[in-house]
Design a binder for these strands. Structure first.
Lengths: 233, 233
DNA sequence: TGTGACTTAAACGTAGTACTTATTTTCTGC
DNA sequence: GCAGAAAATAAGTACTACGTTTAAGTCACA
């Protein structure tokens, strides 16, 4: 899943990013690079590189004679996969999960509609295979296996849309689905209705029925939103 | 619009980012940091910081004993505003514009629907004002003034949706609209139909008619897509 | 024909120093 | 006493030089 490189840089970046998104450093607070260097026992060079990356995510701002200032959340690059992961790992996980699911509900139906027009035969086959995999693993508490198929299914749809902006949301969807299985209370097997919908989407895409693919995917999204409402009111 | 800081770092980052997204450094090609340092006449320190940022955007990958490798486009963080700007400035501007417009067409209708439920009175007033501003500047080649109102209008809708992921797309929409006015051939005044639709969206949001706001915004998006089809077949 | 040891290239990381630029403080002059 | 200018200062910015680590390449030996 993650692409955490090894080395001091990644270690400090991850720690700082996590701390900032968790409001451990509150918005507006200021730190000096030397402090950070000492805190993590690394050279100032490493800290500077980390700060430059955090700055590129608009998590902080670095100004002379004042230090490194934590920016308010509405400046953050919330589409950066790393920021998403940090926030999902932190305290406002529910809020974040809701934002992302709403985004999904807007994007995925349109993506499915496009996929019905643009999907290659290979992608259609892949989609059908994944849908069948979901059916096969939808009973008997095989949640991990189900998750793999579910993630793959949605990735294929987003890729098959032919739109790179949609395709890049595959990671986001993966995080959401993984989060639902792992963190949300999900003792039960997935809802049969959802499984059926996935099979129908695969069919609609294969047969080029764009409107149907869109509407069916919309129903999946609605289901995901309702599930959130139940679990996190 | 831009937040280009001054200094060596921003200069080199911008130059390299532009060069990479323009495929001047083709995918898979490798450079050494010393080369870059010499090419831009800066120290390796600066180059290293730049590379770290480019790495965080997944534009490049830096490995020991091999150098800095340019990653294929499907790895890029295409939601990073800087990447978007670089690509819009480069050769595949039309492709990029289309991807972004499709994204808009998926997101904005949903955002407008949410705005109809969540918009504050201030936001409603702002929206109405902007719509009237668009009407007032829609004739007589006052394209620049029109653009300002148009961008502001869409920003308010996205913000009023109450979803942070939508709100963060304000910059993207601004880039698209600015691009249309400045680079696309747009000698004529904006289409009266589009202007009317904006006024109607403002009304629908103000009166809490979510479904109408969504449908009207969808029509605006469809118009934008058709406009693209005409200008860039 | 491998397979393990050696070489080496390049990034990674540290240390020290000088430059730049805002901010803060202090000093002037009225 | 206070407004404005000059000096002190603090912090990021940038450069250089050096040692460390990793992995690609190479060569020898079985």
């Amino acid at each position: 899943m993650g692409d955490e490189g090894r080395g001091q840089h990644s270690r400090v970046l991850d720690a700082l990013g996590l701390a900032i998104t968790a409001a451990e450093y509150p918005q507006g607070s200021v730190v000096r690079t030397d402090e950070v260097a000492q805190r993590f026992d690394v050279s100032r060079t490493v800290v500077r590189e980390v700060v430059r990356v955090l700055e590129s995510m608009h998590l902080v701002e670095s100004k002379r004679r004042v230090g490194v200032t934590v920016l308010p959340p509405d400046h953050w690059n919330v589409y950066d996969p790393r920021v998403i992961r940090w926030r999902l790992a932190g305290a406002d996980r529910p809020r974040q999960l809701r934002s992302l699911t709403v985004l999904r509900s807007a994007v995925e139906p349109v993506a499915a509609g496009l996929a019905a027009r643009n999907a290659t035969p290979e992608q259609c086959a892949d989609l059908t295979e994944r849908a069948l995999g979901m059916v096969a693993t939808s009973r008997g508490r095989r949640l991990e296996e189900y998750l793999v198929h579910d993630v793959a299914f949605h990735r294929v749809v987003l890729n098959a849309s032919g739109n790179e902006m949609f395709a890049r949301l595959g990671d986001v969807v993966a995080e959401i689905l993984a989060g639902r299985t792992h963190h949300q209370v999900m003792f039960e097997d997935p809802a049969p209705a959802a499984v059926t919908l996935h099979v129908q989407v695969a069919e609609a895409v294969r047969e080029g029925r764009a409107a149907d693919a869109q509407e069916l995917t919309r129903q999946i999204a609605v289901g995901a939103l309702e599930e959130l409402d139940v679990l996190a009111p």
